[in-house]
Simulated scan of single mutants.
Amino acid sequence: MSSVSPALRDAVQTWLNTRRALKGASDNTLIAYANDVHGFLGFVAQHKGGETGLIALTSLTITDMRAWMASLRREELTSCSIARKLSSVKSFFRWLGEREGFEATAVLNARAPKFQAKLPRPLPVEATRDLISALQLQSSEPWVGARDVAVVTLLYGCGLRISEALSLTMADAPLPQVLRITGKGGKERVVPVIDAARTAVDQYLKACPFASNEGPLFRGVRGGALSPRLIQKVMQAARLQLGLPASATPHAMRHSFATHLLAAGGDLRAIQELLGHASLSTTQAYTAVDARHLLDVYEKSHPKSASNST
């Protein structure tokens, strides 16, 4: 970053600090933002043939933006990755323009490449049940099998991310009727715990040789905190045994939770709150219920539609 002026480096850091303070961005998100913006500034310095400072940024053109995106394509980045980097750069320039009093027109008007977003692939209800049952059979240690069942039941029954499930501690046991979960960006949400999840965790704790009054709820075979990779591996073994697709991952349990709830008539906004999504459109993308079913739910639940049917 020697090609970027000290004042501009300081500006990037101030922007990142602002994102953390005002938006609650996680460490991983901030690292991604920093990499995206620093990468862009490094390209500008090379493209313009000199140190990049504020003046250089105010004179950027749409041709410069296209040259940057073309360089990313030569690195064989996907359209989705390029779009994400552009979003980071736009966010920084929007903030910088407001602070320094200039219009970052070329940057903000740059169009992201079109891409087909990958839709999540939740499992059918019966396949989900079969997968959870098969987890018990993947280990010769009964308590390990009970542990794996408990973790995945939480993912499916409560819509948790794997990191959220594995962040639970012994202070959370026995599981209450509701859990307070801190998700991405430090956002807290309240999640009801179904009976099946509480029972699965209770059975695991009764069998676990490392259960104590403190420390992580879910343990590895040596007593340390359980690695997400181990849950990924045991799910891989189970899905191969059942002939399920490679998309049957721990995160697919969260997709399945949302889709099955919506298919059963659940309210989309309530599901949004359970998942901890900031945007309703994100929740919609998480579900795989067809448009006809969504219309049926709408017609049955919307006040105007309901009044017309009476």
Score class of each variant (00 low, 15 high):
172 D>Y: 07
12 V>N: 08
278 A>E: 10
99 R>Y: 11
261 L>P: 01
85 K>I: 12
145 G>L: 11
164 E>L: 05
304 K>R: 15
55 I>E: 15
247 S>K: 07
199 T>S: 10
46 Q>H: 09
206 K>E: 14
157 G>H: 05
293 H>N: 07
47 H>T: 13
165 A>S: 10
128 T>A: 13
296 D>C: 01
112 A>M: 02
96 L>K: 03
270 A>W: 02
309 S>F: 00
29 T>R: 01
128 T>F: 01
251 H>T: 04
287 T>M: 03
72 L>A: 09
158 C>A: 11
133 S>K: 06
281 S>C: 05
286 Y>H: 05
9 R>V: 14
71 S>C: 03
199 T>H: 03
57 L>N: 13
183 G>M: 07
196 A>D: 04
56 A>I: 12
284 Q>F: 10
72 L>R: 08
54 L>D: 12
80 C>Q: 14
184 K>P: 02
36 D>V: 02
174 P>A: 11
303 P>C: 04
297 V>Y: 00
123 L>N: 05
54 L>T: 13
175 L>W: 08
300 K>W: 00
292 R>A: 15
106 A>H: 04
128 T>V: 01
174 P>E: 11
47 H>R: 15
43 F>S: 10
89 V>D: 05
108 L>S: 00
68 W>S: 11
41 L>N: 10
54 L>G: 12
199 T>L: 09
173 A>H: 15
215 G>L: 08
257 F>M: 12
109 N>Y: 00
134 A>L: 01
120 P>L: 07
21 A>P: 00
145 G>V: 04
125 V>F: 10
201 V>K: 03
116 Q>I: 01
154 L>K: 01
146 A>N: 06
301 S>H: 09
149 V>S: 07
7 A>W: 13
106 A>F: 07
83 A>W: 05
173 A>S: 15
302 H>Q: 09
233 K>I: 14
123 L>G: 06
185 G>Y: 03
67 A>T: 15
155 L>V: 05
211 A>D: 08
168 L>G: 05
61 T>A: 08
202 D>M: 09
28 N>E: 07
47 H>W: 14
85 K>P: 00
180 R>S: 15
42 G>H: 05
150 A>W: 01
64 D>W: 10
173 A>L: 11
8 L>M: 15
45 A>Q: 12
37 V>E: 02
119 L>W: 05
280 L>W: 08
270 A>G: 02
48 K>M: 13
232 Q>R: 14
44 V>L: 12
175 L>C: 11
164 E>R: 03
73 R>A: 14
289 V>R: 04
69 M>E: 06
105 T>P: 03
10 D>K: 12
135 L>V: 03
20 R>L: 08
284 Q>H: 10
233 K>V: 14
128 T>Q: 06
